[in-house]
Design a protein around this nucleic acid. Structure first.
Lengths: 233, 233
DNA sequence: GTTTCGATGTATCAATCCGATACATCGATA
DNA sequence: TATCGATGTATCGGATTGATACATCGAAAC
């Protein structure tokens, strides 16, 4: 979940941890205040699995990681920075760069089924924020999966609202929740419609190209059309 | 967080774990599918802290807990039920009952400051679902705290929306999020207005009673007026 | 000039929550 | 009588949070 967000940000440019947090907060809006207690362990996970590489910025040249500990000793890195790397350059920071393996993982996570669980809104919002990396058909599938999910929720919400034994506040809560879900579905319908439109015009313009199936490289198709703002809202 | 939900449900009647989950899902709607991996540990916590007492239903009389382990051995309870309590009565279930200490804790949690963090919507929704247990002034304060919270969010969202460098999908996401927040604020304004109205009429009807400050027993005042539905939505 | 303060930057910890899984019983239906 | 789904309690690993710690840098205050 958080891995997807990190890889998505690193997809276009390398970054250090603090900036990942900042851009998650300022640009995405999801993860209003992502905790460092999740961010740094997530970066460690991704590094261990080979999805990203880390470069210790603090020297002048592109020196590789000084191999001292790096994850064996918890506070070893701190000592090392205090004693050795205080050569008056810049502040010590770790710059993360995505690998080819990381790109593959990113695409798998992005296309994979989203969890139906508690914070589905976050999960969907995150995927939508990176929807430009999806193939048009996968993008449409994402929107329609979300629509179906909200429709199911609406059904159960209506059942709950018809359950009489609710006090004023709980009832207002359920009713407002229902309205919000309806609002979300209308928004999704607009997105789906715009997406269908875009795909139709793209098909007639190109007439016929490498369009057989949506498999293969999920990039190329989606990233190109993302810079053409046509819709209104 | 979950403790508040559990204590709120147990406030009116005793229940066993499975039913707590069911009512959390069917009535509140929050905690769409609360996990047993959080529910049972939470019940254990509450029992350890003395907020609830547990009664092993499975015998005919109101026998107390058989004192065997109860939390020393992890799988001891399972063995005990298999060997000893298979006396052909009912299914083994643990009925939880709130204590006076638990009621005090519930009121503290309900009136306490809600976290400004990630899932503030859940936190607020949960408190609103139990708002009938709050004193009128505390109820109003809850609504206005939430309103201020959403107003702050709206401000940062607008800043984010004015940041140009957003692709189509992210921009749509931010705009929809802003609209939803505005919708929420309008809803809160209706609730606040209704609450003010209710308090005003209550004051003129009673003319003068034990109304000095809202301290003391948070019950009594709130629970009485909850059964008088006057507003529309 | 120096102290203080807030932003930048990395990192850990305890507590909590979730999803998956296991096990067992009950009632109904095949 | 076998099977299946609902009921019921429980644990485990993994992910996330909020709090906290520590350190450096630039600028404003004194």
């Amino acid at each position: 979940m958080l891995d997807l967000a990190i890889l998505g940000l690193l997809f276009e440019q390398e970054m250090h941890g603090y900036e990942i947090r900042r851009r998650l907060r300022d640009e995405l809006g999801l993860f209003a205040n992502i905790s460092f207690g999740s961010l740094y362990p997530a970066l460690s996970r991704l590094e261990r699995s080979g999805a990203v590489t880390v470069t210790e910025s603090g020297g002048s040249a592109t020196m590789s990681i000084p191999a001292t500990g790096s994850l064996s000793g918890e506070r070893a890195g701190l000592r090392a920075r205090r004693s050795g790397t205080t050569l008056g350059t810049k502040r010590s920071r770790k710059v993360y760069r995505i690998t080819d393996q990381g790109r593959t993982l990113f695409e798998q996570l992005l296309e994979g089924e989203e969890p139906a669980g508690a914070d589905d809104a976050r999960s969907f919002g995150l995927r939508l924020a990176f929807a430009r990396y999806l193939a048009p058909s996968a993008r449409l599938a994402l929107l329609e999966r979300r629509r179906a999910q909200l429709t199911r929720r609406l059904a159960t919400d209506r059942v709950r609202a018809s359950g009489e034994r609710l006090d004023v506040y709980t009832r207002s809560l359920v009713e407002h929740s229902t309205e919000s879900t309806e609002h979300d579905i209308e928004w999704l319908d607009r997105l789906i419609e715009a997406e269908r439109q875009k795909q139709a015009t793209a098909r007639t313009e190109v007439t016929r190209t490498s369009d057989s199936t949506d498999l293969g490289d999920p990039l190329s198709g989606g990233a190109m059309t993302s810079t053409s703002p046509s819709g209104s809202s």
